[in-house]
């Protein structure tokens, strides 16, 4: 089954990740996802004791917290996912890497269903796909807030 076309306008890092997954078969996709899960960096010190100030993704079955920092070079997301949820962790990590340095406008322009181009629907249950689609929605909400700060 062919994956959907890669939607135009993705941040370049995210596009590269989508292409990486696209070229992988089912087993390789799972390996990639686990690699990303392993690579998710721990939260920076200042957030570790302050998860209450982060955005919680309530739709995820597992506790997921996200926040964003705006720097000169663009946005940096910090995402916290329990180790016993490697699928969600892997997806969070690839979003984090893929969105590193993107502008809020770029994040807001990502289609909510871009992961179909990665072929994740052949690997994950519909339930998981639903759950992870909420994660991007929350990151967009954070990006929209940053955008509002920038243009008073």
């Amino acid at each position: 089954m062919p994956a959907s076309e890669i939607p135009p306008g993705l941040p370049p890092r995210l596009r590269a990740i989508v292409e990486e997954f696209r070229a992988a078969d089912r087993a390789e996709k799972l390996e990639l996802l686990l690699d990303y899960s392993d690579r998710l960096p721990p939260l920076p010190e200042e957030w570790r004791s302050n998860r209450a100030a982060m955005e919680q993704v309530h739709e995820c079955a597992t506790p997921v917290y996200a926040t964003v920092e705006s720097r000169e070079g663009g946005l940096t997301f910090h995402i916290d996912v329990a180790e016993e949820s490697p699928t969600v962790r892997g997806y969070a990590a690839l979003l984090r890497e893929g969105l590193e340095g993107a502008t809020p406008e770029m994040v807001l322009a990502i289609p909510g269903d871009f992961f179909y181009a990665m072929g994740l629907q052949h690997v994950l249950s519909p339930q998981r796909l639903n759950g992870i689609s909420y994660l991007l929605a929350y990151l967009k909400r954070l990006a929209a807030r940053e955008l509002a700060k920038q243009s008073p």
């Binding site: 799972l30 996802l33 899960s37 016993e84 490697p86 699928t87 892997g90 690997v123 994950l124 249950s125």
Partner: peptide
């Protein structure tokens, strides 16, 4: 339920 847990 999480398809990657075994691999982890």
């Amino acid at each position: 339920e999480d398809i990657l847990l075994y691999d982890q």
